[in-house]
């Protein structure tokens, strides 16, 4: 079994985002980066599958600038066998079609049976890479998996639906599975595994050689949303004083503290 997991590195979502000089995406100054949360679930699921079959092999891939090597190292420490870095300082300007094309350019030669990735990135939130990649490779594709099992060449995935029900889908391999939060419990890399990961291979490939597809869409602007409500802000002072202020507001504006 040959397994690939595709990951992205994203800024901490609690950060304050400011536009870059071109005004088309965030400025990376002062931001701390980490592995996309959805991709952590993808890595965990791939590692679990890898562990069941000692003859299998698990590669992790990321497209992006030099900093993404940190995310690759984490995936290696979680249990991936080898990493592939496609350095691309301009990755943030590429659209999902271009990124999927780069990954497909690598994956089509890799003879993979199954590819895991997050259902979306936390920063871009396009949720397109998985299905686009599957289309380019001619793989089956299940999105938003919160349950996964494999028997022979058939994967069974549970898709999360509105209202809490799940749709059960069987997919013939080769397949792309996009992972939803809650699919599993991503492990923390242990110190021995972090040490072991240092010896694992990180291959470097050339983005332009993998794909020369042009963008289908471009980002013109990046900005904070216009606030719809003009909510009241309570801040400063100690917790007791703030709590007192809030109680006054609740007494005035709601009925829940009456009677």
């Amino acid at each position: 079994m040959k397994i690939l997991v595709c990951i992205k590195q994203i800024p901490d979502m609690a950060s304050k985002f400011k536009p870059n000089a071109a005004g088309s995406w965030f400025s990376e100054a002062d931001l701390a980066f980490r592995m996309n949360e959805y991709d952590e679930y993808a890595v965990e699921e791939a590692v679990k599958l890898r562990e069941k079959d000692p003859a299998s092999e698990l590669a992790v891939l990321s497209v992006g600038p030099a900093r993404v090597v940190e995310a690759l190292k984490k995936a290696l420490a979680m249990g991936c066998d080898r990493a592939v870095h496609v350095p691309d300082e301009e990755a943030y300007r590429k659209d999902p079609w271009q990124i999927a094309s780069i990954i497909a350019g690598y994956a089509k030669k890799g003879n993979f049976d199954i590819i895991f990735t997050g259902m979306q990135s936390q920063d871009r939130g396009s949720a397109q890479i998985g299905p686009l990649l599957a289309g380019m490779l001619g793989f089956s594709c299940v999105t938003t998996a919160i349950g996964f099992s494999l028997e022979g060449r058939t994967a069974t995935a549970k898709r999360e639906l509105e209202g809490g029900a799940k749709g059960v889908v069987k997919a013939a391999l080769p397949a792309v599975i996009t992972c939803q939060l809650g699919l599993n419990t991503p492990r923390y890399p242990t110190l021995p595994n972090i040490m072991k990961a240092k010896k694992k291979e990180i291959a470097v490939l050339n983005a332009a050689e993998l794909s020369s597809e042009a963008a289908l869409a471009g980002t013109e602007k990046f900005y904070a949303p216009v606030k719809k409500g003009t909510g009241l802000v309570l801040e400063g002072g100690d917790a007791a004083a703030l709590a007192g202020k809030l109680i006054d507001v609740l007494k005035e504006k709601t009925t829940v503290l009456r009677g």
Binding site: P11, F17, W25, F26, D123, G125, L216, E220, F222, P225
Partner: peptide
Amino acid sequence: AEGGFETACCNGKMRRLVKPAT
């Protein structure tokens, strides 16, 4: 907006203006 589409990004915290080229 402006002949394009506004979309949510960064966990809903920010917006992008995107213009399709197709």
